[in-house]
Design a protein around this nucleic acid. Structure first.
Lengths: 210, 210, 210, 210
DNA sequence: AATGAATGAGTATTCATTCAT
DNA sequence: AATGAATGAATACTCATTCAT
C-alpha cells in the first residue's frame, strides 16, 4: 500500500467520521437547528476541519443523503437480480429491503424531503447534485422494473410501472414520516413496524389482478 | 352586538388577515426562509403588529396548521354523517375530501411534517399544542370510524381501524410530499392527480375483503 | 413640518451619526482592521442597526467617500465660478480648496485609493457606484476647466488640460499619502503643510509659459 | 565553499522563490485578499514552509518592499555617482531610474502605502522595520542630494532639498496610484507613461531658477 | 391598537498559524 | 527541511422579538 493510497484512505476515514457525527446531530435537531459547531463537537474536531472535507453545511447534509441513496440502490438492484423469484416474491423482498434501508438510516425520508427545497440546492456543487438526481432516478427505475415485470406477466394490475413505483415509495415514506411525527406528538413508539406491515399488505393485495 | 363583541370580531378579522398573508409567504419560501418582516409586508402591517396576535413565529405557523386541521375534521365528519352511504361510498367521499383539503391548502402536509420537530414544539403555547393534538386525534379517529364500519360489516379486511386510518393518511401525505419533491428535482408537473388516483385505487382494492 | 418629513430628517441624522463614527474608526484602523462591531460601538448603536442604514460594510465606507467627493466638487466648482479671477488666481484658489477638502476629511485620499480595488466594487450597489464615478469625473473635469482656461489664454504651457488636472490631483494626493506614511514611520508631524506649499509652488512655476 | 555557506545560499534561493510567488499573488489580489495558501501554491510549496522563511504574512509582504527599496537605492545612488552630469542631467537620469523601478515592480507604490498602516507594523520584527526605515531614509537622502547640488549651484530654486525630494517622490507615487485607480474606475489604460512625462516635465520646469 | 426602529444573540465560513510526522 | 492537516479565533450579516411613541 503506497503512501498516496494510505493518505487517501485516511482522508476517507475522516469524511466518514464527520458524516457519522453529522448524522447524529442532524437526526437530533434537524437541519436548521444543527450548527456546524455542534457537528464539529460531536466529531471531536474543530469547525474549520469540517470545511476541509465538505464545501459547506448543505453539501455535508446532501452527502448523507447520497450515502443512503447508494445503499438503497444497491439493495433494490439486488432484489431485481433475484433469478428464481416471481414478481410477488420480489415485491416481498423489496419490502424487506425498505425496512433495511430505514434501519440503516431512519433519516432517509427526511433527507429526501429536505432536498426538495430549491433554496437548498443552490449551494450544492453541480456534481453532487447530479449524482443525487441520478441515484434517485435509478433507484426509482429499479423499483419500477419490479412492477413492470408483474404487470407484463399479468399478475399486477395494468398501471404505469413508474406510477406504481411512486405509489410504493410514497406509501413507505408517508408511513415513516407520519409515524415519526406521531411518535413525538403522541409519545407512542414501535407502532411503525406494524403499520408498515399493514400498509404493505394492503398495497400488495390491491396490486394483484384479481 | 355589544362593543366587546365587535372588538372581538375585529380582532379575529386581523388574525385571519395575518394568517392569509403568512400562508402565502410560508408556501412560497418555507418556514425557515420566511421572515416575519416578509409576512408583515404581505399583510400590509408592521412586524410588531404580528406579535399582538401571535406569540411568535412558531405559533403563527402552527395556527395555520390548526386551521387546516379544522377544515379537515369538518370534511371528514361530514363524510361520516352520510346516512345512506356504505363503507365503499364513504371511502370514495373521503378521497374526495382529501383532494379538497389539499386544494384548500397544499401546505397541509408540510405543516403536519413541520410540527414533527420537537424543537419547534418548545415554543408553542400548551393550549395551542393541545388543540392541535386534539384535532389531529379526532380527525384520525373520524377516518378510522369509516374503516371500522367497513371492517365490522365484513366489507374491508379485518385490520385495526386506526392502523388503516394511519395507512390511508400516510399514503395521501406520502404521495403529495414525494411528488412535490420530484416536481422540483425533475421539473415535472401535474403528475400528482394521476398518481393519487392510482394510489387510492390500489388502496381501495387492497382493502376489499375479496 | 409633517410627520413624514420629520421622520426623513431623523433618518438622515442617524445616517450621519453612523458615518461620523465610521469615519473615526476607519481613520484609526483602516478598512480591513475595522469591524462593524467597532463602528457600532463608536456610534453607540447595535451592529444590526448599521445594516438598517447601509447595505454592507463596503457601502458604508463608500458613502464616506461620496460625501467627501460632494464637498470637493462644490469647492472646485465654486473656484470655477469666480468671475473676476484669471487662471493664476483660480489655481491659487484651487490649492486653497484642496487644503480645505483635506481638512474636512483627511481620509479623502485613502478613500479614493480604496475604491481602486475591483474586489471592493463588487459589493457596491450600482447606484452608489455610478454616483461616485460621476462625482469623480465631474470634479476632475472642473479642475481641468481651470487649466484649459490658462492654456487657452496662453498663460499655461500647452498640455492637455485633463493631463494637467491628473497631475495636479496626483501631486496633491501623493504628498498627502507620502507624508501620512512618513508621519508614522518617522514619527514626524506638521511637515505636510510646508511640503504641500513647496509642491504647489513648483507646480505653478512649471505651469507658466515662460 | 563550506557546507554552512552552501546551506545559506540554498536558503536564500528558497526565500527568493517564495518572494517571487508572493509578488505575483499580492499584485493580483492585493494584501488582504491574498492567502498564504495562494502564495504557497504559486510557489509550489506547502503553507507551513512559508513560515520557515518568513515570520508571518506581514513580514513576507514587507520583505518584498525591502527588495524594491534596495533596488531603488542602488539606482538612485548610481545617478548620484554620475561624475560628468550636472543637476539637470541627473534629474533626467533620476526620472529614468523611477521608470525602471516602477517596471521592476509596479507594486512599489502600493507597498510603500501599505506600510503606512500602524496596525501592520505591529507584526514586523524590529530588525526588518529598521532596515526598511533606513533604506527609505537613505533613498530619499540620495534623491535630496541631487536637488541639493542643483540648489547649491544656483540652478534649482532655493528650497530645502528634502522637501524637494519629498515632492518629487510624491509626484511619482501620486501619479502611479491615481492612474492605477482610474484605470479600474474608468477602464482607461496606457495613459500612465504620458501623464508621468507631463508631470515630470512641469516639475522640472518649475524647479529651474528662471 | 399599531408602529417600525432598534436590538443583539446567533452562525456559517475563512484563513493565518501551528505542529506532529 | 518540508509537509499539510488541523486549528479556532475572528467577523460580517440576519432576523425574531421588543418597546417607546
Amino acid at each position: 500500500m503506497g503512501i498516496q493510497e494510505r493518505k487517501e484512505r485516511e482522508k476517507e476515514r475522516r469524511r466518514q467520521q464527520i458524516m457519522v457525527a453529522a448524522k447524529r446531530v442532524f437526526s437530533d435537531r434537524g437541519f436548521n437547528k444543527s450548527t456546524m459547531e455542534d457537528i464539529a463537537q460531536e466529531a471531536e474536531l474543530s469547525p474549520g476541519t469540517l470545511y476541509l472535507y465538505f464545501k459547506n453545511k448543505e453539501e455535508l447534509y446532501a452527502s448523507l443523503s447520497l450515502r443512503i441513496l447508494q445503499y438503497l440502490l444497491i439493495r433494490v438492484e439486488h432484489v431485481n437480480e433475484e433469478e428464481d423469484s416471481g414478481p410477488e416474491e420480489k415485491l416481498k423482498s423489496l419490502v424487506d429491503a425498505m425496512y433495511d434501508v430505514y434501519e440503516f438510516d431512519p433519516l432517509i425520508i427526511i433527507n429526501m424531503f429536505h432536498l426538495q427545497s430549491s433554496e437548498t440546492l443552490k449551494n450544492l456543487s453541480p456534481q453532487l447534485m447530479s449524482e443525487i438526481k441520478e441515484l434517485s432516478r435509478r433507484s426509482l427505475g429499479s423499483i419500477a422494473q419490479i412492477f413492470k415485470e408483474g404487470v407484463d406477466k399479468g399478475i399486477f394490475v395494468d398501471r404505469h410501472p413508474l406510477a406504481l413505483a411512486d405509489t410504493f415509495w410514497s406509501l413507505f415514506s408517508g408511513v415513516v414520516l407520519w409515524l415519526t411525527s406521531k411518535k413525538i406528538i403522541d409519545e407512542k413508539k414501535d407502532y411503525l413496524k406494524q403499520t408498515l406491515d399493514v400498509a404493505f399488505e394492503i398495497f400488495t393485495r390491491g396490486l394483484r389482478k384479481t
